[in-house]
Write a protein that binds this DNA or RNA. Structure first.
Lengths: 146, 146
DNA sequence: AATATAGTTGCAAGTAATTTGCAAGTATGC
DNA sequence: GCATACTTGCAAATTACTTGCAACTATATT
């Protein structure tokens, strides 16, 4: 956490206050875990990584507030499990290896202008607010193993 | 169902038996609903559409068997709800209402040739085997309600 | 720094979705 | 038609998540 703070004048406490949340130790812990890991984590993951004692329902409440405040993105992968990832200002997707479940981010969004064209063929929707795109394949390492 | 059968010599009963499942009225009902609707349905959707009396756990068991036998694809949308869709050779995506979780199929795939370009920026992958794309928005009905 | 108070937490109980055990019912091969 | 292995319905269990509430605490105010 401290390396991060030295690079950036905004502390976790400031981030939390800036979105209107009190800086409790539980919130600081959850936020710092997500910042440090930079990847999608489940509630059990977060609880097991927490240095401070935290009730399960507190973790659920905190993460839900972070989602509302758009600090965190809620994701449901193919397993049906719920994961949470720190929001980055950069829109990106993921390639998931179907063998080892390794995840690589895809920096560019290949959809571009095509998105709104989707609603032209729709009866029920007139606008698209967001989208989620995951790619699947076998990574080079797993391909080599076979 | 019967229009379909006239086009195709394979009946639902034959399909079920061909994968080693007995042709019970519950299995026939679930299969026919999925064939008829051609889109992602939830267990409550299937139960409400069923002409035959069916217990919830029976529907869960049947759908899970269909997934194992690869008659049906299991999908987890970003709403956290589980949906099931008949395996079809026609590639398509979905728009999901973030309010009511209603799902509408999107007939065309807007990705097209852009898919393989994704691997050009990848270190770990050289080919993409598949992808999953979901759109989110508020459907016209839910927009009206607000 | 002490205080007031509105926001937060832990705990226990509640929901919703899905699964499981088991007795009764039924499809299929003989 | 009969045997029996497969299926179903029902009720209870499980899992993931949510809620109500009393006790606690961060923050603004004095």
């Amino acid at each position: 956490m401290h390396q991060l703070l030295s690079k950036n004048p905004t502390t976790t406490v400031d981030v939390l206050r800036s979105v209107g949340l009190r800086a409790t130790e539980q919130r600081i812990a959850v936020y710092d875990i997500l910042i440090k890991k930079k990847c999608a984590l489940s509630i059990p993951n977060i609880l097991s990584l927490s240095p401070v004692d935290m009730n399960e329902s507190t973790a659920y409440r905190i993460i839900e507030q972070f989602v509302e405040k758009e600090l965190v993105r809620k994701m449901y992968f193919q397993t049906g499990k719920t994961f949470f990832e720190i929001m980055s200002d950069h829109h990106h997707h993921h390639i998931v290896c179907t063998q080892c479940h390794d995840v690589e981010p895809v920096s560019a969004c290949v959809l571009g202008k095509n998105i709104q064209s989707v609603t032209r063929g729709s009866h029920k929707f007139s606008t698209i607010a967001d989208h989620m795109l995951e790619f699947f394949g076998t990574c080079k390492t797993c391909t080599r193993k076979k």
